[in-house]
Design a protein around this nucleic acid. Sequence first.
DNA 1: TCACTAACGCAAATATTTTGCTTTAGTGAT
DNA 2: ATCACTAAAGCAAAATATTTGCGTTAGTGA
Lengths: 187, 187
Amino acid sequence: MINKPTPRPGGRSARIQAAVHQAVRELQQEQGRAGLTVPAIATRAEVTPSTIYRRWGDLAQLLADVAVEQLQPEQPPADTGSLRSDLLAWLVEYFEEMSSAPGRAMLRDVLGTEGHTSAGKCDGFLRQQIEVINERGLARGEQPIDIELVTQIVVAPLMYRILFANETPTEQAIEALFEQLVSSTDA
Amino acid sequence: MINKPTPRPGGRSARIQAAVHQAVRELQQEQGRAGLTVPAIATRAEVTPSTIYRRWGDLAQLLADVAVEQLQPEQPPADTGSLRSDLLAWLVEYFEEMSSAPGRAMLRDVLGTEGHTSAGKCDGFLRQQIEVINERGLARGEQPIDIELVTQIVVAPLMYRILFANETPTEQAIEALFEQLVSSTDA
DNA sequence: TCACTAACGCAAATATTTTGCTTTAGTGAT
DNA sequence: ATCACTAAAGCAAAATATTTGCGTTAGTGA
């Protein structure tokens, strides 16, 4: 009756996707990027390699897929009492994760793949989390902060340092940029 | 007598490196990322595959290497008469290149590989070019612009948009950020 | 000119990826 | 429930790509 939106998302597909994703995460943790091969993943997930190749195309796309899933926030940002402190706390945590070894690996997987879908989702999650913080602040009667400005003034420079300068932003560095954000919105 | 700095950079190595790099560029242009395989590159460069594997490890690292080479500026920034117009002109050109399809492919190759050496060089080239602009301005008696601020205010946000939002920055967008840079240094 | 050895070539051994065909199991209609 | 339909998985053979051991070539320094 209704057009099936996804052709056949039924139980089996989902089960296999879950098994494969889990296999990737496990192998990635146990051994690094080495030992992370399609046949190895297939074996661990109790699936044939051809299933993986047909569904994901190649290892890079599978890894990007898994990385995006892991990037997806499982918890809403902590409520620390005020919009500004919520946002700062969340940013600190976010960039701590992004500059860790696993975080960097996820970024590599996400950015190293053609078709920006994965990277786009990454940006989407970020905005979504900030949106939650904004809405909570709004409920408190606080002035929301422009998400565009947050990415422009705080997120982008930190990401640039992680990606291109191999730096691990200190909490002070994050606070400094946050101050710039705040003062630019106050003005 | 003197410790050999690079083990054996002599003629043959260089020749082969050049042949392989050229083969990569040619194949990349003729066919896209498909058809860009180590054996294909080896054939085109008239080299055995094992040479490539032994020297570069795998395709990803070879591509990153080639990408870095292509990112390396072959010309100094144009002299347009003033430091500010030099910088703006150079930024516009730089981001036009970076948001093009080949530019994005290079960024993928550079960022998608472990060991940040490639990405670091990318940032290095950028700073180097800005440095040239600064020095030329200095010779004219102009006030140089802090490179750190340029990357923070202009470069990072644009790069973020290219990488995570799949946007192609317009010239106006670049100019707008440039204005912010200028006003923040004037203040 | 010569001894030395890093880097290459070659080819056999492995490992991965692709592909044609078969089987399984959700899905919607009866 | 049952059944026809078909997307997605399994299997196994073929095609490709990667690794490796060993012989050869050609820069390098004495």
